[in-house]
């Protein structure tokens, strides 16, 4: 004997589906967030073109800025979802990190080992562009995780 009827179960499932649709719409990253994050990530590769002192300075600024960015997002959206959350989103996050690492190391090697000046800046631009795409893919994966097409 089940504690509730099938009609009640269906009603409850519909409520969950409605909540998921609402959440999927709510957590869309605003433009200022995804643009800032993309440019900051690109900057990590581009700054490798400069002397080590500037690299360290940028990295320090990067982490402080990242903390501010997350704080601003949480304050504005009233929610927080880590990129590495379980589900399809984790695959997008891990895949993105691998791609960034390949571009980062590749551009560093081309610039510093093969002597092609500007390769780190090109790598940074590429990472920034890819990060924009990955933000979009992550949101799509999140919507699918919630069962929202």
């Amino acid at each position: 004997m089940s504690p509730i009827s099938q009609t009640e179960s269906l009603e409850a499932l519909n409520q969950i589906a409605a909540a998921n649709r609402e959440m999927a719409d709510r957590v869309r990253a605003p433009g200022w967030y995804s643009w800032s994050l993309s440019l900051m990530l690109g900057g990590l590769a581009a700054v490798q073109e400069l002397p080590l002192t500037y690299v360290f300075a940028y990295e320090a600024v990067f982490f402080v800025a990242l903390a501010f960015l997350v704080r601003a997002y949480k304050r504005k959206a009233g929610v927080w979802i880590p990129g590495y959350r379980a589900g399809r989103t984790r695959w997008v996050a891990v895949g993105s990190a691998v791609v960034y690492a390949v571009v980062f190391i590749g551009s560093y090697y081309i610039d510093h080992e093969l002597g092609v000046r500007g390769a780190c800046i090109a790598g940074g631009v590429l990472i920034a562009a890819l990060a924009r795409v990955h933000c979009h893919l992550w949101e799509k994966a999140y919507r699918r995780d919630l069962g929202v097409a």
Binding site: A12, N20, M23, V27, G78, W80, I81, L146
Partner: peptide, 24 residues
């Protein structure tokens, strides 16, 4: 229903502000 709604929304995020949940 109210608790189901709360859990459904919190399950979709890591953390949510009380005021945001109340508004939703």
């Amino acid at each position: 229903p109210p608790r189901l709604q709360i859990c459904a929304r919190l399950a979709a995020v890591e953390t949510m502000d009380f005021a945001t949940l109340r508004e939703m």
